[in-house]
Amino acid sequence: MATGGRRGAAAAPLLVAVAALLLGAAGHLYPGEVCPGMDIRNNLTRLHELENCSVIEGHLQILLMFKTRPEDFRDLSFPKLIMITDYLLLFRVYGLESLKDLFPNLTVIRGSRLFFNYALVIFEMVHLKELGLYNLMNITRGSVRIEKNNELCYLATIDWSRILDSVEDNYIVLNKDDNEECGDICPGTAKGKTNCPATVINGQFVERCWTHSHCQKVCPTICKSHGCTAEGLCCHSECLGNCSQPDDPTKCVACRNFYLDGRCVETCPPPYYHFQDWRCVNFSFCQDLHHKCKNSRRQGCHQYVIHNNKCIPECPSGYTMNSSNLLCTPCLGPCPKVCHLLEGEKTIDSVTSAQELRGCTVINGSLIINIRGGNNLAAELEANLGLIEEISGYLKIRRSYALVSLSFFRKLRLIRGETLEIGNYSFYALDNQNLRQLWDWSKHNLTITQGKLFFHYNPKLCLSEIHKMEEVSGTKGRQERNDIALKTNGDQASCENELLKFSYIRTSFDKI
């Protein structure tokens, strides 16, 4: 039985969820670079991206490699990797027998973001014989899940209580170790020597080791999670996991709180800001991140802002960003909400898709409305799209047979046209069989910064309504002859009103 693990408890099935942008060198404390989270699957090609990484700022997932063999891993080693800020997950990587050479110096898994409450997941690794993470000293947050690894031993010899604050939620089941077939031998045991430290858990006094050649490092209890030197002297209180010299914040392997210019500090002093819960960055760093993602459509890219001495992905609820200094300031009234469309555009074809934009005031991208039916549609669209004030790209209304009016965009005031449909149009209306009105132009103002209007096959939309939009939106004169079809717009509506004058002759039985 794995020490510190839980057996036999019912657990939810383990679901495996399925960018080499360097964020800056980590400095003297770390020998390499800070790398983003990685999802490495199918083959070993991307694994080489770990070569210079000291910190993975995010998670590391290595999974679904069915053609790899043990010899493929023999020359692979990433000794610079010290810390993973989120979680480490391995799933069905064939041929991998140990992690001792792959990650010989991995010391800390912070667990800032977890995989279903777990910071370390080893699942269905069919050839893994031992973990071998002999320098792993601290899992700051989260638990361990090690399950269905039929060859995995050296679990009962690990004292997880020396690595985690609590072992109650560890789930370590259905491994070879369960069948008591392992016969784990710690260093020196074969020669009758006791080389590794022994600890007591559940009444068992057991030597602690990761492999037959690597003991588990056990520091004096007084050192807590700070770690200790090879001689057993406690590291500085700002260290986490390990250090090369005692009581020196510049000799830590990793930091308990924050890293700044080669030393570990309790908090980031001005003019620095907390970033990702582990390091200090200056304003320029946060500003660069903001600008890199301002026009990016890459998933996970955030326009970072500053709030409460932190550089964070977005302002919290009730705050909006001051564009001059990136500071989050309290909103006066309802907060603006910028919604970034991942692929640059979004099609609204149902109430469900409209709900995804609920509360958005600025759309960074283009909207395509293609709704053919739905219950209580006008009210639903207004509830979900009615706060949109600005669209950076274009607005396209296409084959939306259920629409009679666009009044559900009740606050839309600006279409920038930074991206144009077919390279020309910022407003595009095609084949809307029941569209009769755009907006009530006596109450609604709309500016279209650039781009043209396109109207074709809107049989109940009168040309007068379209011409009014040209005047109000500032697009009059931009359109070419064929942009607004004269014969297919309003051709099934009563669009022309003329005053009919009647004269009559009164007659009676005795007068003409």
Score class of each variant (00 low, 15 high):
residue 28 H to D: 10
residue 30 Y to N: 04
residue 31 P to H: 03
residue 32 G to V: 11
residue 36 P to A: 12
residue 36 P to T: 10
residue 38 M to W: 02
residue 41 R to A: 13
residue 42 N to T: 11
residue 42 N to R: 05
residue 43 N to H: 06
residue 43 N to M: 08
residue 44 L to H: 07
residue 45 T to F: 04
residue 46 R to Y: 06
residue 48 H to S: 12
residue 50 L to H: 01
residue 51 E to C: 15
residue 55 V to I: 13
residue 56 I to L: 07
residue 56 I to S: 01
residue 57 E to F: 02
residue 57 E to W: 03
residue 58 G to Q: 00
residue 58 G to F: 00
residue 58 G to T: 01
residue 60 L to G: 00
residue 61 Q to L: 10
residue 63 L to M: 07
residue 65 M to F: 09
residue 68 T to G: 07
residue 77 S to G: 08
residue 78 F to I: 11
residue 78 F to E: 01
residue 79 P to T: 07
residue 79 P to G: 05
residue 82 I to P: 00
residue 83 M to H: 07
residue 85 T to Y: 03
residue 86 D to S: 03
residue 89 L to G: 01
residue 98 S to M: 02
residue 101 D to G: 05
residue 102 L to H: 00
residue 109 I to L: 08
residue 110 R to G: 09
residue 111 G to H: 00
residue 118 Y to P: 00
residue 120 L to N: 01
residue 122 I to Y: 00
residue 122 I to G: 02
residue 123 F to S: 15
residue 134 Y to D: 11
residue 135 N to Q: 11
residue 136 L to M: 01
residue 137 M to W: 11
residue 139 I to L: 07
residue 140 T to Y: 08
residue 140 T to W: 03
residue 141 R to F: 09
residue 142 G to F: 01
residue 143 S to E: 07
residue 144 V to Y: 02
residue 144 V to K: 01
residue 146 I to C: 02
residue 149 N to I: 01
residue 155 L to I: 10
residue 159 D to C: 07
residue 162 R to S: 07
residue 169 D to A: 06
residue 170 N to W: 03
residue 180 E to Y: 09
residue 180 E to L: 12
residue 183 G to W: 11
residue 188 G to S: 08
residue 194 T to D: 06
residue 194 T to N: 15
residue 195 N to E: 14
residue 200 V to Y: 12
residue 201 I to H: 15
residue 202 N to P: 11
residue 203 G to E: 11
residue 203 G to H: 09
residue 213 S to H: 11
residue 214 H to Y: 15
residue 215 C to R: 15
residue 216 Q to S: 09
residue 216 Q to A: 14
residue 216 Q to M: 14
residue 223 C to M: 02
residue 224 K to M: 05
residue 224 K to A: 10
residue 225 S to I: 12
residue 226 H to V: 14
residue 226 H to Y: 13
residue 227 G to D: 02
residue 237 S to F: 13
residue 240 L to A: 07
residue 240 L to M: 12
residue 242 N to A: 10
residue 242 N to C: 12
residue 245 Q to K: 07
residue 247 D to Y: 14
residue 247 D to N: 05
residue 248 D to A: 06
residue 249 P to H: 10
residue 249 P to A: 12
residue 249 P to M: 06
residue 252 C to D: 00
residue 252 C to M: 03
residue 253 V to L: 15
residue 258 F to R: 05
residue 261 D to P: 04
residue 263 R to V: 07
residue 263 R to H: 07
residue 265 V to L: 09
residue 269 P to A: 11
residue 271 P to Q: 09
residue 271 P to D: 02
residue 274 H to R: 07
residue 277 D to V: 05
residue 279 R to C: 02
residue 282 N to S: 15
residue 282 N to L: 09
residue 284 S to W: 09
residue 285 F to L: 10
residue 285 F to C: 04
residue 285 F to E: 02
residue 288 D to V: 10
residue 289 L to Y: 10
residue 296 S to G: 12
residue 298 R to F: 05
residue 299 Q to W: 03
residue 303 Q to N: 07
residue 304 Y to H: 03
residue 305 V to K: 12
residue 306 I to S: 02
residue 306 I to N: 03
residue 307 H to P: 01
residue 307 H to F: 08
residue 309 N to I: 03
residue 309 N to F: 08
residue 313 P to L: 05
residue 314 E to K: 09
residue 314 E to T: 14
residue 315 C to W: 03
residue 317 S to G: 07
residue 319 Y to W: 15
residue 320 T to G: 06
residue 320 T to I: 06
residue 320 T to W: 09
residue 321 M to L: 03
residue 323 S to R: 03
residue 326 L to V: 05
residue 329 T to N: 12
residue 329 T to C: 05
residue 331 C to E: 02
residue 332 L to T: 02
residue 333 G to Y: 12
residue 334 P to M: 15
residue 335 C to I: 05
residue 336 P to S: 06
